[in-house]
Every structure is written in C-alpha cells, then in structure tokens.
Nucleic acid binder design. Structure first.
Length: 127
DNA sequence: TAACTGACTCGGC
DNA sequence: AGCCGAGCCAGTT
C-alpha cells in the first residue's frame, strides 16, 4: 500500500483512480500513529495536502470501517484534542476506553496533555 | 438536479 | 477571550 505520499490535491482528487486511494492514504497515515499518541484530522489532511478539507479526513475515518486493515481511528481527534467522533464507535465511550488502554488520559471527552501527545505526520514522517 | 450535512479548521469581530 | 461565519469534498436526501 502506498505510503500516503503528499501530492497535488487537484491531481489526486481529479483522477478517479487516485481518488480511491484517498481513503487508503488517510487510513495508512492513521495506522502509522504510534501507540500512545494522537493526531488531528487537520494534521492528516495537511500531510495529504488537503489541509483545507479536514472534514474529508473525518469522513474517511468514518469509512475506516470498510478499511482492509484495522485503523486506530480512536487516535484521531479534532484540533483541540476533543473526542468528536466517539459517538461513531458504536459505544459512547468505546473511543475513550481504547485511548485509556494506551495510557492516554481522557477527561471530559478531551485528551489530556494533547499537545504533548500530539503526533504530526507532516513533522514525524517528514516530507 | 440542487441543497444539506458532516468524526474540521481558520480568521474575523 | 469567546462566538460567528465561511470554505472545503463527497455522499445523501
């Protein structure tokens, strides 16, 4: 699977073939999130070159259910560390439980020390 | 076919 | 410092 390399947004989205890999790219990046770390939709979007469309990342996460491999969507939160998508995990606190299982402290639907645990693909994966 | 919505983000007030 | 509006892409109604 491609390593989610950033490319021109128009180039990717314009081509139906490449478009299909948009999901895989997002999933791929999500899978690369180290255990015990979290990232934001915007960070992934930015890494993919579609930083203006963080919504699509979230939407792609929603589709992660169809992903060929498991995607740690629980490690992806919004820019303030809020567990915005926890309701989509089936159970109201499934996401929080998964996070706590990785020693990530969650309080009031928000990741504690989010800035410290924040993992930016564009920075960590560089390039 | 057009309009609305959404697991977001940024900038202005 | 907090609230409000606009922009983004795709899928749904």
């Amino acid at each position: 699977m491609a390593k989610a390399k950033p490319q021109s947004k128009k180039q990717r989205l314009k081509d139906p073939l490449n478009k299909h890999s948009f999901f895989e790219d997002v999933w791929d990046v999500a899978r690369q999130i180290p255990k015990g770390r979290v990232t934001s939709y915007g960070a992934i979007a930015n890494y993919l070159g579609t930083k203006m469309s963080a919504r699509m990342v979230g939407w792609a996460m929603g589709a992660s259910h169809f992903a060929p491999a498991k995607v740690p969507a629980h490690r992806v939160v919004n820019r303030v560390g809020l567990l915005t998508g926890k309701m989509h995990f089936g159970a109201p606190d499934a996401m929080q439980k998964l996070l706590e299982k990785e020693k990530i402290k969650v309080e009031n639907n928000k990741v504690k020390e989010f800035e410290k645990l924040f993992w930016d693909p564009a920075k960590e994966l560089m390039l």
